[in-house]
Design a protein around this nucleic acid. Structure first.
Lengths: 197, 197
DNA sequence: TAATATTATCTAACAGTGTTAAATAGTTTA
DNA sequence: TAAACTATTTAACACTGTTAGATAATATTA
């Protein structure tokens, strides 16, 4: 009976191996360079075995995206904790978001690329989205204003547009020097934050 | 000798047919749905003939992008003409940019998508980029401030981030109602414009 | 006009992609 | 040991971009 557990553990391990291999390939060759045969090669199996663990290639990418969200959320929460008042927290969080994008370029494109899902997606009900984390803090900044859901969303989108737009420019390479963009980012954020109260 | 001209004209026509077919497919199935065999089918040739007119698939996409720039530039120039003072012109231009993105969704993704080139690209030296058109007007707004090239670029990026970011959110679908986003857009633009002088 | 040269186009193939069905190898159960 | 079940692979399908070589159509020359 214990052998069942061992086998289950082994299966779980290959599943993780698949994801790890995929992640590595995506990091090295971009997510368009990912192929099932490359994954199979990395885990020393043949390609069809992957279908024993995932419905299709899309499912693997989704799982990777989910893992990305977990990391990003962790970063955001930590950034929030590092500051005392909500306004500062909000800036720290967006800077952490910015940092995540550049430390995980391929991952970010997978998560927020034009042809993938957007920031507000509800594909993983079990995973908290950045949206939740940010709006929470936005509400705190707005204090006793008691903003409606629509207003909050609107404010979030304003932040997100700037940050995501700036990241997009820089991810494709030929942008301004990084510190200048960071300045633009900070200016924009404080500008929007000022508009909150 | 005149037959040479006729043949050249015919060749030019098939070249255009290829581009038109590609454009149609991209519009209908998205740019990831574009394949050489589909193009060949549409123009009633076999696939390899395309290599008689373009170096590869990439070259076709680039040509399409170029055509997109021409249309966008026309729109931007017209928007500029429609207003009297530079600040109003700038807003009208960004709204035209916004409109272009939604009326040519697939095209916009091809032109400004994450894995393609960015707004500031110099891939087509013969084609004026939106960057030129916008910065020109930005300088006008700033009047006698005589801003440096860096400052102008920085300002342009600030505009572009917001607009491109907002468009990105909306292109993938599940955004806010369109009129609300348009309001966010206008607010952001006037905000940045105010910061110019 | 007939033979030759040139150009236009296609056929066939290669190496790659995601995906599926069927065959085989390995392990567990009766 | 035989049967049942599971894990894994082989082979194939329908695509993809791309290239080389054969063929058909046209233009040039004798």
């Amino acid at each position: 009976m214990a052998s069942k557990d061992r086998i289950l553990r082994l299966k779980e391990e290959t599943r993780n191996n698949i994801l790890d291999a995929a992640c590595k390939i995506v990091k090295e060759e971009g997510w368009q360079g990912l192929s099932l045969r490359k994954i199979a090669d990395a885990i020393e199996y043949t390609a069809p075995i992957i279908y024993e663990y995932f419905a299709n290639k899309e499912a693997i990418l989704q799982e990777l995206t989910k893992k990305g969200y977990l990391v990003l959320n962790k970063d955001l929460i930590q950034a929030k904790k590092s500051k005392g008042n909500p306004a500062e927290q909000l800036e720290a969080m967006w800077l952490a978001y910015w940092k995540f994008a550049f430390e995980n370029k391929e991952m970010y494109q997978l998560m927020f690329g034009v042809e993938m899902t957007t920031c507000h997606m509800v594909a993983f009900p079990e995973v908290q989205t950045p949206y939740d984390l940010f709006t929470e803090t936005i509400i705190e900044v707005m204090g006793d204003k008691n903003p409606s859901e629509d207003i909050i969303c609107q404010k979030y989108y304003t932040y997100y547009s700037v940050v995501h737009g700036l990241i997009s420019i820089n991810l494709v390479g030929n942008g301004l020097p990084n510190d200048i963009n960071l300045q633009i980012l900070k200016d924009a954020i404080t500008g929007i934050t000022r508009s909150l109260n």
